[in-house]
Design a protein around this nucleic acid. Structure first.
Length: 420
DNA sequence: TGGGCATTT
DNA sequence: AAATGCC
């Protein structure tokens, strides 16, 4: 059996752990730049749909609810706490997202009881409520999880048994767009073919749909039948590409502002590379104007810059992205977002010994590695960007807008919660 | 009117 | 390189 553990209203729950006044209130968490609502407490759900831009929330509703900026330092740390408990008890798990994990329950005898136990200790030790769905495949476990969350009588745990007559009934009542892997575009096409429920999809010709659409859909059909074909991924698989991007709090036309932004993205990307022991062989820089503005003012350039040899050295990556930026930058556009991607990643240890790497002598190479390690250690201890290449203007007009951010209760000595 | 990934075509 | 999907 496979379990899907999902933290309930995760960001909202994190905020509540440290601020009990938020209990039983309609609260919402906003995306970066306080853009749209990306997490809601149950109390908020009837009033504000997922993803609604904050500025579109009607005034009368605004007054009754509490909106908070996102505090990823807090959520990331709480996520680690939750999953370290899970992994203390279950070795075979896949961290799927900041608030979800798949569990291999194959070797658990009383897996339902076991999940009740997990749920209880996670709540006890972190304050975070979780739900667990259990079934034969990842796709079905996802469905089971939705049921566990929706109906409180299940106490957070639901087992979707493919042999139970209720199984057919459940799939018949499940709209196709609620299935994992079936988004807006696909569901529209499937509905036009008359396939509008999970049960109808389950009974469709898998290989035919595979040819018509994609192997992803083919696998989904099989998974709905109880044939597992999406395996659990190991925990330590390195990312295949790494992106850092951000929209500007205030859009800009200035090259020097873009240069600063792109330099920060490059530094952050290089840091992430080192963290997973990878080297990049090329980098991509992109700019974009605001897609909600009119057509005439749109410009979405990007460019891939090859690196001479695989590297995770911040300086080389900055140099490459600045070169890329210069070649795509055009004046008079109002830029809304910029970003950098690390591409063609290879493992540091497995990197082929190539002709160009000999150009650096061994001593210089070792010193560069030490420099990057020292940089990472200082920034880890003292906070991001304590040491950086080139200045960082804390008052830059394009900085993140975070008007309603809570404290970083668990990761900063000076922001610890105070008990009175 | 978010950011960060993977995957497929 | 673009499209699609997920959280």
């Amino acid at each position: 059996m496979i379990g899907l553990l999902d933290c309930n209203n995760f960001y909202a729950s994190c905020e509540r752990v440290f601020n009990p006044k938020l209990e039983r209130k309609a609260i919402g968490i906003l995306s970066n730049n306080d853009g749209c609502v990306i997490a809601r407490s149950n109390e908020l759900k009837p009033f504000v749909p997922m993803g609604m831009p904050a500025f579109k929330i009607p005034q009368d509703i605004r007054k009754k609810i509490i909106l908070l900026s996102s505090n990823y330092e807090l959520y990331g740390d709480m996520s680690q706490r939750v999953f370290s408990i899970v992994q203390d008890y279950l070795y075979d798990t896949e961290l799927y997202s900041i608030d979800e994990a798949f569990l291999n329950l194959q070797n658990q005898e009383n897996y339902i009881e076991y999940c009740h136990f997990l749920r209880k200790i996670i709540r006890q030790r972190t304050g975070i409520p979780v739900s667990i769905g259990i079934s034969k495949t990842k796709t079905l476990a996802k469905i089971a999880n939705h049921i566990a969350k929706k109906n409180s009588q299940h106490e957070g745990i639901y087992f979707l048994n493919t042999n139970d007559p209720i199984f057919e009934e459940t799939l018949k009542q499940l709209p196709i767009e609620e299935i994992w892997g079936i988004g807006r575009k696909l569901s529209a096409k499937l509905i036009s073919m008359g396939i509008d429920t999970a049960w109808k999809l389950r009974n469709s010709d898998a290989s035919h749909l595979g040819k018509l659409f994609s192997v992803v859909l083919e696998r989904t059909v099989l998974e709905l039948r109880g044939t597992s074909c999406i395996e659990l991924d190991a925990l330590d698989i390195p990312k295949k590409n790494i992106m850092t991007s951000r929209s500007f709090g205030k859009a800009t036309k200035e090259l020097f502002e873009l240069q600063e932004a792109v330099r920060i993205h490059a530094s952050r990307g290089a840091e992430k590379l080192r963290y997973q022991h990878s080297l990049a062989q090329s980098v991509l820089v992109f700019l974009r104007t605001n897609r909600f503005h009119d057509r005439a003012s749109q410009y979405h350039p990007s460019i891939v810059v090859p690196l001479l040899y695989p590297t995770n050295d911040t300086r080389q990556i900055i140099e490459a992205v600045q070169k890329g930026l210069k070649s795509i930058f055009k004046e008079n556009y109002l830029y809304h977002k910029s970003g950098v991607m690390m591409l063609d990643l290879v493992d540091k240890e497995k990197r082929q010994f190539d002709f160009f790497s000999r150009a650096e002598n061994e001593e210089t190479k070792a010193r560069n590695v030490t420099l990057m390690q020292t940089l990472d250690q200082i920034n880890k201890k003292m906070g991001r960007n304590t040491v950086s290449f080139g200045g960082i203007n804390p008052k830059a007009s394009w900085n993140l807008k975070r008007e309603f951010v809570s404290q970083r209760y668990t990761t900063r000595w000076d922001e610890l919660p105070v008990v009175k």
